[in-house]
Design a protein around this nucleic acid. Structure first.
Length: 781
DNA sequence: GTTCTAGAAC
DNA sequence: GTTCTAGAAC
């Protein structure tokens, strides 16, 4: 760390901040260069001490004022408004200002930046990035605090605040940002401001941000015993070696020690990841059938930022074991390049202790982009340890996969998503022109993003391994779930072919078609209730279907009320765990699509044709929200859609576009998006046409929001293209996607709850994310 | 899908 | 005390 100029993470600072001629003239007139220093740090990080030291120790004639929200209210709680007023007054008197309040979130800092810029004054951020443990200990144990934040409650407050912390950025308007990571950094920073004469200015840029932080005990774990006494205790013997040392004395030595503890031992047991085993597994998997049920995946988050290998291997083995229990006939292969891979040997060792079937979960040494040609292992799906922007490059597995797959993967990825949150994954069907598809037989790439331990990236976890482990677990679960969804799709296709063959030979009646549909409903419902039946190979599925066919025939419906009953009976009879049917409410659209004449007196139905009806959504989630509902009996969700439905889908899309244009005639400011929910709540395939204002009282919860603004929403244009190319559409069926944090669909900013999100989107004028601006995904005037 | 409501979060 | 979320019931 070198706070006084030699920034560790940014380019060398320019000689002086770039500011308008106007401001320069003003400064010359006054003969001084004032500055506003916005302190950023939780309670206990030492903001007041810092500010007092600058105010008291100024040696070069600059006049400083500390503006403290805790004291500005004269006994009552102070407000930001009061602080802004005091700042403005002090600046007008020619003084420089230190803002002593937490300012951890961008929004809290914004007004101070704005005020400074209005008054043509430079604004700096000084982030007091001390370990959470230090801040908590200080906040908890201090007495007579000006804001009365002390004792046990301080620990909770600090923790809560740190969860929301947003690292200050130059784009917020700061000319200079300095991070202080320990008392040494703080002292240097204080000295620097003390030595600043009235007309001096400091170089602009970012200084002192760490690329790697010291190990910290997870904040949550630390806080589980949040009363004062246990906080004191828990910082005792349980803390790792690195933390038992005084934190501030020698940060570098501490850092090295920590890294020692983290890195893998150099001497790896020979033969742990044996080549013979590779060959054995390759043979077992050397068929298309098995290959189509095999996922090859790299270890997530362990390469670049050294997520603890021991914990990571536990998580891999746990999640894989759980997953294999739920599904038969699926294979998971952990791949790493080196025979000496520590993660492979750890996983292998732990898997053997768990007595997992080693033909269904094993490690493989090789290049994940050449598993078939070089390793003889067939895998139709590979996972990528992606970066959050889903961009090629960077190195490691990500660079290798994007490079091997060629430009088409990049294009295909952009269609599915433009960013990924830690702990989630996204399925990208690999176009058949991709070399990776042609050469290796890879049909899908699943991009996965694990926890991020890199402070230069969003969602940096500050070595909170409790949270990190949770996210890593989510990442693998999401990966495996998405893989299962691909395999399901594959099985569905096999089934589809089977049906077509039977039909061509005259062996099927209309009821057979119905039967297949009911079967797919069964699986859909089970998916929802997490009672997944074992996934079968195509052959087994065939046998299974045949065996159950009489039941379906017997039970096939004779009235519109029958489908639910029929399905319920079937699932019980076939010995599959019984699960809930579509609720009565979920059949509304089905009833409507089948019998629109019954509803002709309502003004909700805008259009009726043989193929579809257009309906105003009863609970619109935006100013304009209509549904184009297919009338094809048996077509309930994206999972049911096949190539034969393409003409229908195209016509539904055209109808949607037509209605969007009609609405645009009434209000040209609207922007529409057309798409399907990955897993609809209502039966009967329906296309949403929804204006992007999301201005509606019916939009009430996170699920509503995320179902229209995450990859859960599949753009109609993409669905059509995917079916053209692959014969089926992928659905992002991972339920976690609907529980994701709330982000603005335009600027992607995060918001803590629905009301705050709504007030943001009412005003957000940012342009839409780039991927939405392509391929007519948005319809506007 | 919505409504209702307990209890968590603020 | 009020706001907000999330799970159960429908």
């Amino acid at each position: 760390m070198n706070p006084d100029g030699g920034g560790s993470s940014s380019s060398p600072p320019p000689p002086s901040p770039s500011r308008g001629a106007d401001a320069e003239a003003k400064e010359e007139e006054h003969g001084r260069k004032q500055v506003v220093v916005v302190l950023v740090g939780p309670p206990g990080s030492g903001k007041s001490t810092f500010a007092d030291a600058v105010v008291a120790g100024s040696t070069a004639g600059r006049s400083w004022v500390r503006i403290c929200q805790d004291t500005i209210g004269n006994g009552k709680a102070g407000t930001k408004i009061q602080c802004l007023k005091a700042t403005s007054d002090a600046l007008k008197e020619g003084k420089s200002v230190l803002i002593d309040r937490c300012n951890l979130e961008r929004e809290q800092r914004a007004d101070f930046v704005k005020l400074s810029s209005t008054l043509h004054v430079d604004v700096h951020a000084v982030a007091l990035d001390l370990p959470a443990k230090v801040c908590i200990s200080r906040a908890v144990s201090r007495k007579g605090h000006e804001g009365n934040l002390q004792g046990g409650k301080a620990a909770l407050v600090v923790n809560r605040m740190l969860q929301k912390k947003e690292t200050p950025l130059l784009t917020e308007g700061f000319s200079r940002i300095m991070s202080c990571n320990d008392d040494g950094d703080i002292k240097k920073a204080v000295d620097m401001y003390n030595a600043l004469g009235p007309s001096d200015c400091l170089p602009s840029g970012i200084f002192g941000q760490k690329s790697k932080g010291p190990i910290q005990v997870g904040i949550m774990k630390f806080l589980k015993k949040s009363d004062t006494s246990s906080v004191e205790k828990s910082s005792g013997p349980k803390i790792t070696l690195s933390e038992s040392k005084p934190e501030q004395q020698n940060p570098l030595a501490k850092h090295e020690k920590v890294e020692d503890g983290m890195s893998c031992p150099m001497e790896v047991e020979k033969g742990l990841n044996d080549k013979n085993e590779n060959e054995k597994h390759a043979k077992e998997c050397d068929s298309d059938d098995v290959g189509s049920c095999t996922l090859a995946f790299p270890s997530i988050s362990t390469a670049d930022f050294q997520f603890d290998l021991d914990r990571a291997s536990d998580i891999i083995v746990d999640t894989a074991a759980d997953f294999l229990q739920k599904f038969d006939n699926i294979r998971l292969v952990l791949v790493d390049l080196s025979e000496k891979s520590r993660i492979l040997s750890l996983v292998k060792e732990k898997a053997s202790k768990k007595s997992i079937d080693c033909s269904r979960f094993f490690t493989f040494v090789g290049d994940i982009t050449q598993l078939h040609t070089k390793g003889g292992l067939r895998c139709s799906v590979i996972a990528n340890a992606a970066n959050w922007r889903l961009k090629p490059g960077g190195g490691g597995v990500n660079a290798a996969i994007f490079s091997a797959a060629g430009e088409s993967l990049h294009h295909a990825t952009k269609k599915c998503a433009d960013a990924l949150r830690p702990g989630t994954s996204v399925v990208v069907p690999l176009p058949s022109i991709s070399p990776l598809h042609q050469r290796e037989g890879v049909t899908h790439v699943i991009h996965v993003l694990g926890p991020n331990m890199n402070p230069m990236r969003p969602d940096y976890l500050k070595n909170d391994y409790i949270k990190g482990s949770k996210i890593l677990r989510e990442a693998y679960n999401s990966l495996f779930e998405n893989f299962a969804s691909i395999v399901r799709g594959h099985m569905g296709k096999q089934n589809g072919k089977l049906g077509a063959e039977m039909s061509a030979s005259g062996g099927t009646s209309p009821n057979d078609t119905k039967m297949k549909r009911e079967d797919s409903h069964g699986s859909e419902r089970m998916k929802k209730h997490k009672l997944l039946p074992p996934i079968m190979t195509a052959k087994q599925q065939h046998e299974h279907t045949k065996a159950n066919t009489p039941n379906y025939h017997d039970k096939s419906m004779t009235s519109s009320a029958a489908p639910n009953q029929a399905r319920e009976g079937d699932t019980k009879k076939s010995g599959v765990v019984a699960s809930k049917t579509w609720g009565s409410w979920a059949r509304t659209l089905y009833e409507l699509a089948m019998h629109p004449e019954k509803y002709k007196n309502t003004d909700s139905i805008l259009e009726t044709s043989d193929e579809f009806i257009v309906l105003k959504d009863l609970y619109p989630k935006a100013k304009k929200h209509v549904l184009v509902i297919s009338r094809t009996d048996g077509l309930d969700s994206l999972a049911d859609v096949k190539k034969e439905h393409l003409p229908l889908l195209r016509r539904m899309h055209s109808a949607g576009v037509k209605w969007a244009h009609k609405f645009l005639e009434e209000d040209a400011s609207l922007v529409f998006r057309l798409g399907y929910h990955s897993v609809p709540s209502m039966r009967q395939l329906h296309l949403h046409i929804i204006s992007q204002d999301f201005d509606s009282t019916s939009l009430k919860n996170k699920k509503h929001w995320n179902s229209f603004t995450t990859p859960f929403f599949r753009d109609s244009v993409d669905v059509i293209e995917e079916i053209e190319q692959h014969g089926s559409a992928t659905a992002n069926s991972d339920e976690k996607i609907l529980a994701m944090e709330l982000r603005c669909h335009r600027c992607r900013s995060a918001h803590p709850n629905i009301p705050k999100l709504k007030s943001h989107i009412a005003n957000c004028k940012s342009s839409f994310p780039s991927h939405l601006l392509q391929k007519n995904r948005l319809v506007s005037s």
